[in-house]
Structures are given as C-alpha cells and as structure tokens.
Design a protein around this nucleic acid. Structure first.
Lengths: 129, 129
DNA sequence: GATAGTGGTTACAATGAAGTAACCATATAA
DNA sequence: TTATATGGTTACTTCATTGTAACCACTATC
C-alpha cells in the first residue's frame, strides 16, 4: 500500500493493514509457503498477476521483512524468494482465512435482495414524478 | 473488490481475497466486533475513512453475508450494523493478525539497505556515462 | 421559519493501482 | 550469428479507488 497515515495509526488493525492490506500479498505469501521459489515460478503460480505487479509486491514484502531474497551471481540470473520468520508466522493465519472462506463462501445475500435494494431509490424517484 | 476473476478463481486464497482483499474491510469488521454500531459511530471509530467509502464497503460486506443491517423507521433515521455468524467467525482471525503485527512490526528491512538497493541501478547507469 | 441531526446519495476531480508491450544484460546452445 | 532463458525495468495508458463538497428527506427543537 505505502500509505504513511496507515502505518502510523493508533489502531493496531489499521497498522496491520499498512503491510497486509493488498489483495496480492496474502496470495503471494501463501503461494511461497515453506519453499524457495524463483521469480519466474511465482509469476506462473500466482493467479492473474503480471510481472510488473509481482516485482512491486515482492519488493514491498521484502522491505517489510516478510520475504527473503537470495540473488545468485549467474547468467541467466537466478533469484530465490522464501519467507522469513515473520512471514512464516503468517502461514497459519492465512490457512485459517482459507478455511473460513471455504466454510462460508456460499453464505451470501441472495441476488434478489441485492436487486431489490438497488431498486428502492429508483422507485422512490419515479413515485415523485 | 468486485473482481469477477478473483471470485471464480481455483486458488482458494484468491477467492478469499475477492471478499476480504481490501484494506478497509478487516478494519471495519474489527471495529464493529460483537456490538451493534450505528453508521455515524462507525464513521467516527474507523480511522481515516470517509462516509462515502464507508457506505460502499458496508454495502459489499452486507452483500457478502458478513454484516447485518437493521434499519429503523424513525426520523431522524437510525441504522444498526452488526456481524453475522460468518462475520463473527472472522474475529479470532483478525485478532491473530493484530497480534502478529504487534509482535513483528519492528522486524523490517532497515532504511539503509532499502536505500542501497534503490541506488544499485542508478550507479550502474552513471558508471556507463 | 430556520436550524440541527441522521444516514445516506450524487457529480466531479484527483490520485493510485494495474495492464501492455518493448527493452536490457549476460551466457549458453544451436 | 542468432535465438533462448532469466529477472527484471521503463514509459505509457487505462481502470479503480478515493476525496470533496453539496444535496435530500424527515422530524424535533429553538
């Protein structure tokens, strides 16, 4: 994210979101898991991400101490990413988020109610005319 | 988020991010906690959020079955938000994210290394000239 | 009759995140 | 000599999120 206001907030949840509040980061962390993964592999594993965004997110994750980057002096270049202690500590939490989602993802407001709600103001307006 | 590609992804983590992958939602859920909270209160409690963004996020959270909205037929209007079963199930997870952050938020890459890294390519370029 | 309080909505502008495609250095293999 | 592979970077464009400020309906109060 990189929003100064979040990282210095009093609310601890808000501060946590300063480092974790992006849709990509939990996915990347969860994809690396306990392995060492090369950049190209990650780009292939993480769904829908582009190389540019992946680079940016990896950089931020490394800066936040979640990721370790190991660069080998070879050609063609080789770089391996793995989770730091801080990153590894997140794995059980991400695991539980997955479980939560699997357990409840069908529990949603039904389409009809959503429709009805969005109609409310429109009918009110036409009632005026 | 509202990205169709995320909510139909195979990767369960990616699907989870379809509902939870915004910086605001965990903060809002955590702010409501086990209480019934009125709109105005939320706007005051949740740090930095504007009423417009709050409205949007609450709407999505309700659609995703995380939030219950209770509207009273009074004037001036009164609306109370509370967590559904699905939302309540998230509380221990958010709690552990907070704890994780408090425990590790000081564990970051130091400023100097970040500087050095961003200098690398620049020195390479000047070396060329 | 004007004002305050509530829970929003709306239009518009500005900012930030993401996508696209081309490019780079280097060594090895064809 | 040309192509291939890797791990990026860069410039540019497009799309999504956010901020700002004004507005609305309704009732009670001054």
């Amino acid at each position: 994210m990189r929003d100064e206001r979040f990282s210095v907030a009093e609310c601890p949840m808000t501060r946590a979101m300063a480092t974790l509040g992006s849709k990509w980061k939990p996915i990347i962390i969860h994809s690396i898991h306990t392995r060492k993964v090369r950049f190209g592999q990650l780009a292939a594993i993480v769904p829908l991400i582009t190389r540019k965004v992946l680079t940016e997110q990896l950089k931020e994750l490394e800066e936040d101490g979640i990721l370790l980057r190991e660069e080998f002096q070879e050609a063609p270049p080789r770089v391996e990413y793995s989770l730091s202690k801080k990153g590894l500590a997140l794995l059980p939490i991400l695991r539980s988020i997955c479980d939560w989602n699997v357990a409840y993802e069908k529990t949603k407001m039904c389409e009809q109610k959503i429709m009805e709600r969005s109609m409310k103001k429109k009918t009110r307006v036409t009632a005026k005319v």
